[in-house]
Simulated assay, not measured.
Amino acid sequence: MELFADRAEAGALLAERLRDARDPVLLALPRGGVAVAAPIARRLGTQLEVLVTRKIGYPPAPELGVGAMAEGGEPVFDLRLLHRLGLTPESVAGVVERERRELARRVRTYRGDRPLPSIEGREVIVVDDGLATGGTARAALRAVRAAKPAKVTLAVPVGARETVMSLREEADEVVVLREPVDFRAVGQWYEHFDQLSDDDVLELLGRG
């Protein structure tokens, strides 16, 4: 399966699939989702904004996500994984609190004191650079749903097939360009998949 050159190319290809959206609110998950969403914003002629999310990691191995949260929403846990690890939501309360603080810091970094745009009754497109387990996307979609939009679309260049299927229950529409069977990591589907900094995100948002 052909690779995307980079996030910008993936976003341009996604934009063609989203061109019929009507005055949408475009929310990107930082950091990688912002680079994908920037060409979509240009194609649709709409403002790009961030929706900050944080993974809730397993304390002995923080890279293993047992849940996630998005600004304006409650933590969303992988209850089956928690059970397998002998944990409960209460037992990772300390991790949740730390991630809440980091989430708030990133909101201040990216938006300052400005709130998210109002999405009640609007069409909303949530963008990320790919879906592995889908934990942060799920938390983002539930936070958006709570604000009562008219329609929620999740748009990603690539995603694990099972994850894409499960997230169709969370969004009105899921737009994904590629669903490879042999999915291992998001980065394997890009020729260039550089890590982005907060400064990179601010530059993409026109706030650098």
Rank of each mutant, 00 (worst) to 15 (best):
V50P: 09
I119R: 09
P115A: 05
T88L: 10
L26S: 03
G121I: 13
T53Y: 08
A38S: 02
R31A: 00
E90G: 14
T88R: 11
L64G: 05
A15H: 01
A132F: 07
V126A: 08
E16G: 03
G121C: 15
M69L: 15
L85P: 06
V124I: 04
E97H: 09
I40D: 04
T133I: 07
L13E: 07
P75E: 01
G45V: 01
A15W: 02
D20L: 15
L85M: 02
T88N: 12
A132Y: 03
V126Y: 14
R114L: 13
A68F: 01
R114V: 11
L82W: 12
P59I: 11
G86D: 04
G73K: 00
A12R: 01
G94L: 15
G45A: 06
S118I: 14
G73C: 01
G73F: 00
E71Q: 02
K55A: 05
R108T: 03
D23Y: 07
D20H: 15
L116V: 05
I40S: 00
E49S: 03
G45I: 04
E102W: 07
T109G: 10
L14Y: 04
D129I: 10
E74G: 12
V92A: 11
A139E: 10
A21W: 12
T136Y: 06
A15E: 04
T46F: 09
A15Q: 07
R17A: 09
R114C: 11
R43M: 08
V96N: 09
V95M: 06
E97M: 08
D128C: 04
R80L: 14
Y58S: 03
R31F: 04
L14G: 02
T136P: 09
L131Y: 06
R105Y: 10
R17I: 08
I125H: 12
G67D: 09
R19K: 01
P115Q: 07
A35I: 06
R111A: 13
P39H: 08
E102M: 05
F77A: 11
E120R: 10
A15I: 05
R100L: 07
E71R: 01
D128L: 09
T109R: 13
R22P: 13
R105D: 15
R105H: 11
A21R: 06
V126G: 06
R98C: 05
A140K: 04
P62H: 08
L44P: 14
E123N: 11
E71Y: 03
A93V: 15
A104C: 09
